[in-house]
Design a protein around this nucleic acid. Structure first.
Lengths: 170, 170
DNA sequence: ACAAGCATGTAAAGAGTTACATGATTAA
DNA sequence: TTAATCATGTAACTCTTTACATGCTTGT
């Protein structure tokens, strides 16, 4: 259950409201663990119910600011150190490649060319993100940059692969 | 809904039973779109209900062999050509990197070192898979190889990245 | 005779998506 | 005043996981 831990992780940096967290998911976490508004608010309520986070302030428009509790921090550390990461990754994009044989070679090449463009676009978006973020703070700054670098390398790799694969069809 | 299309895709190669498809998911598709036994049997029943596949033979032990219908093939082609692939990918592994700041530098380095090993292991597994598969047939042979090559490149990339990131902590 | 593997199915719970629903505050 | 943004919550549905449940066939 990674969403729970993503929220705990973000709150380990600083207290935040559901809305703040939603914005963080839309930017930094979107490429790693997307979540919807509905999901975030529901999970925050559960998390507060089990005492892993707590409401520390209320603002205008019913804004509720949550902060990590000691139990929440313990759970975050437990997740990071005592549980193995899931290796399973689903990729709709790659699943499609498996079945390109039902299309004409031209169509298959077209799909792979699309993946080249898509990867270029993703790289560009990540570079834009890199410039737009203010990297003032400590932890998320260092490790957030690492994840961004991963995204760039990943997309570069996929681009090269898709190019290679498209050329292979000829 | 990619599971549906993964099943249609596999059946486009040749007729198969739920059990056959389960084995295919455990090997070739495991790294791209994992699915459980329960999910596969349930989806096959639904797919047969809507006429995208049909039972073409029955064997011992209640074995039911399914084959793609014309409507099924049309749906598969429609999915491949008329719908955009989902760019969203969830990675528990990378999510954790975001929050390594709550651990000590030694622990963080340890996690990244683990990712190096994990990527090496995955590469080795893929190479084993490559050797174990009999690449006799047409479509899945060509495109299956492509996906395998992607897996190798992906793990090599991740290995290099994790090594770089671990070194960065010092 | 027995184990391994073949073969299917369902129930319950958890996770994720889409849509609906509401209302306050701020800046132009 | 009005549009944009801030802000939260719930309902319904779909997808995924885990567990339960059953029984046949083949090879040793």
């Amino acid at each position: 259950m990674s969403l729970r831990h993503a929220l705990l992780g973000l709150l380990s940096e600083r207290p935040a409201s559901g809305y703040d967290l939603l914005k963080l998911f839309e930017t930094s976490l979107a490429n790693v663990w997307p979540a919807t508004q509905s999901q975030i608010y529901t999970e925050l309520t559960k998390l507060a119910g089990t005492g892993l986070i707590a409401v520390t302030a209320e603002g205008p428009r019913g804004r509720k600011e949550y902060a990590l509790t000691d139990e929440g921090m313990a759970e975050l550390r437990h997740w990071l150190t005592e549980t193995r990461p899931q290796r399973a990754v689903r990729s709709d994009m790659m699943l499609r490649v498996f079945f390109l044989g039902v299309l004409s070679p031209e169509q298959a090449r077209g799909y792979l060319a699309e993946l080249v463009d898509l990867s270029d676009q993703a790289c560009e978006d990540l570079r834009g993100l890199m410039d737009s973020i203010d990297w003032e703070d400590g932890n998320l700054s260092v490790y957030g940059r690492m994840v961004l670098e991963y995204g760039l390398r990943f997309n570069a790799m996929r681009r090269e692969w898709a190019q290679w694969a498209a050329d292979l069809i000829d």
